[in-house]
Design a protein around this nucleic acid. Sequence first.
DNA 1: CGTGCCCTTGAGTACAATCAACGTTCGTGG
DNA 2: CCACGAACGTTGATTGTACTCAAGGGCACG
Lengths: 239, 239
Amino acid sequence: MIERHLTRLRARDDLDAAEEQAIRGSVTEYRQILAGKTFLRAGELLEHSTLLLDGFMGRYRDLSQGGRQISEIHVPGDFADLHSFTLKRLDHSIMALTACRVAIVPHSAIQALTQAHPRLARLYWFSTNLDAAIHREWEVTLGRRSAIAGLAALFCELHVRLGLVGLTEGPRYRLPLTQEEVGDCLGLTPVHVNRSLRELRERGLMIFRKDVVEILDHPGLIRIAEFDPNYLYIERMPR
Amino acid sequence: MIERHLTRLRARDDLDAAEEQAIRGSVTEYRQILAGKTFLRAGELLEHSTLLLDGFMGRYRDLSQGGRQISEIHVPGDFADLHSFTLKRLDHSIMALTACRVAIVPHSAIQALTQAHPRLARLYWFSTNLDAAIHREWEVTLGRRSAIAGLAALFCELHVRLGLVGLTEGPRYRLPLTQEEVGDCLGLTPVHVNRSLRELRERGLMIFRKDVVEILDHPGLIRIAEFDPNYLYIERMPR
DNA sequence: CGTGCCCTTGAGTACAATCAACGTTCGTGG
DNA sequence: CCACGAACGTTGATTGTACTCAAGGGCACG
């Protein structure tokens, strides 16, 4: 069930059998979440974290006049709210962008896990720091990249992250988001997302249609995005 | 020397004498850093973290055509790069925005500290999650706030963070940044920062001049920024 | 076969960028 | 002590990217 999560962890560091068992043992419950549901609202007091097994989730904040900013997209294998272990209440909401399957891990279990297995403590701390690195990259996109460069950067990032957990097929991957949701990641209106996607298509760089991303010119896409995957820390941890 | 750091920690949770001593004992060196110096470049392998005692630092990334994005401002009492403890190499650079005094804490000392004192492990993990929360708030600014609202949000945030470590005098605080650096936080050009600051001034909300921020109409500033300090987690940790 | 959601396209607007010039302050050296 | 230069701040004129408003089209689902 949580194979993708283990794959994700193993992409960065080793995991021995005892550690793997400990992680498996810390799941207390599995749940389904309907597409579009905000299952975690800013400010709620939390006593467990949510491991995303299948589907896409988004962390977001709403502003008064209808503005919404998505601060990170979660893919299968990610903890959507591991940071709630130390924060207790989140500063943002989390929604299921598509139908999702999740595993529930109580904070008490994370406490036990990290106490008993120092390497897991490190790995999970690392994991929240990786979320922060993704936020920083998105700050660069939001502040300094043009609309097409931002789109290119987003699709490059998801290509890498989904690839890590086996959810790409070469240059293609499923991404069931609306153009409005993409705009909420990039600080753009849906209309402008639409026009910019057309430009990416017309330039022969990539196609995003019917919930599928297809990268046609990967080097070109990387160039326009100035995409450097270092911030995803896909190399294994130095000892 | 590291009083402000202790103050900052104590704003969120208790600290007993043993913990305090352990933290004090983990500093191996004090250094001065010249204003404007990039003392930590993206990609370097790190074996210590840097505690900011005095002055302002910025995490930033440069893009090809002269664009720069600052992803977070650090104030005295902050660890500027605690996340390097788990990341080893950073995805961004860090510069001294003003002359700074810092304390060096080796990763081995952090390792020992967190091993011996579970509450400190929690607190420092929390601390990096707080950085992530600040990144998220800046994503909202960069993606969805107007220029004046973004400026207002930035100055509100710094007012709170500096207040926590005793660096405000009522509605006033020292902030020795250029308008260009402020623009690099907000994704704006220096020219537009200048005009927007004038508008804030003319509306009687705040003044930023000669390295000093003075908030004239705090409720008004909070309103225009839609500033909600929850993301700074200034309430004490729930047990 | 309608209804709603999403995508697409067009026309006009606005916020912020760019280009350019000038002012101010401050440190440095003649 | 004054002249000079560099960095920063200010303002004006113009351009451009992205937003707003609006309408129509495709598709899935009840």
